[in-house]
Design a protein around this nucleic acid. Structure first.
Lengths: 206, 206
DNA sequence: GTAGGATCTGAACCATGGTTCAAGTGATGT
DNA sequence: ACATCACTTGAACCATGGTTCAGATCCTAC
């Protein structure tokens, strides 16, 4: 009874801290961000951070894990809800952008994994790999079904994820382009391509 | 006479240091990389670095400027040598990948500009903007000529550059995929798109 | 050979920033 | 009221790492 309330409160405190940490990490990068910056954003003392988390690195690890968990959940739903690979891909693009750019806590995601050296690094990398393989699988399915054309689904996934991840470097919520509009534009560009292809026009090169 | 030799030697020394710095920056990130790491890679004392460059940040600035200069030269050539926007775009993709991943000194390019706070930051950002606008211009030209289809050429350029820049995070020279093969795969994917479009098939959505 | 400049060394300096901890605050149960 | 415990504070500690500098070394000119 009392424990339940405490558990909720605990989760809340930790979530608040994670959200602030995530924002600061994202704005300045992991190394440039200081614990004092994070504390200042919450208007609390540094010591508080260490009451709820063991270290700065743990803060990053929690951020990343949180984001990866949401990405994995998102892609599972995308696969389930759409029959064609093309539709699943478009849903994936929208979902990925939301995870990184809208749902704040942990938004810097699997970027900066180099900064992790502790015990939880392998676990995070494993999760990231699982996600990458899920994306690869969607593309591979599209190729099998004749919906998509790529030489190497794994490389195609890296390229796609690169374009999506890079948005954290340039997209800003207060810009003229909303997140959903961006998602649609990116889906058009990445799925359909930039090039106008006339009827019956063949692919360039072999 | 003597001055000429000195000038050459000076350039050589600085280039050696820049190359080492670039590799370390790239491997560990700007903040995580230490001056002692860079010195160790060259097997010299830290003091040497400060004889040739005023600070660590200057090292980063020189790296970035060097890379941006090469990118700007590259895109000028690409524009000149190819009549169609599609061909220019494919050349640009290949050239960008080479600048970032092959021609070592300065390869981390315009990434990590947040880390610059000194006097040369605005200059670097201006150059980067010039490059981005050159890329945007190629795309816009393609749209005007009816070769390409995008709503917003600027956004399309960001997406394209994002996919290209992200390669520094995952592509490795010793992998099974060579740089030129990667360039071709990326050009196919980004220019032509992932989706197979049958003859006369319309774009999804409006 | 020797003076003088250019170049290099590495130990020491010092600010930054992650981390710790002893002490304070406030709520809860008795 | 009082004891207890969860929670918070912020000053202090200390390792890291950018930077400096006094001296060593090397090279060129005379």
């Amino acid at each position: 009874m009392v424990q339940v309330m405490c558990a909720q409160r605990t989760k809340l405190r930790r979530a608040e801290i994670l959200a602030a940490a995530s924002e600061v990490f994202r704005a300045k990068g992991f190394h440039a961000a200081g614990m004092r910056d994070i504390a200042a954003r919450l208007d609390v003392a540094v010591g508080k951070l260490y009451y709820w988390f063991p270290s700065k690195e743990a803060l990053l690890a929690f951020c990343q894990e949180d984001c990866l968990t949401r990405l994995l959940a998102m892609i599972a739903v995308a696969e389930e809800e759409h029959v064609t690979a093309v539709d699943a891909l478009r849903a994936l693009i929208r979902g990925h952008l939301r995870c990184l750019n809208a749902e704040v806590p942990g938004s810097l995601a699997h970027l900066e994994t180099e900064s992790l050296s502790s015990t939880d690094r392998p676990r995070i990398l494993r999760q990231r790999r699982r996600y990458e393989e899920a994306v690869t699988a969607v593309i591979a399915r599209g190729v099998r079904k004749g919906e998509l054309q790529v030489k190497d689904a794994r490389v195609a996934a890296c390229v796609l994820l690169g374009a999506l991840n890079w948005t954290v470097k340039w997209w800003r919520p207060d810009g003229r382009l909303g997140l959903d509009a961006l998602a649609e534009a990116m889906a058009d560009q990445l799925v359909d391509g930039l090039c106008v292809r006339g009827p019956a026009r063949k692919r360039r090169r072999k």
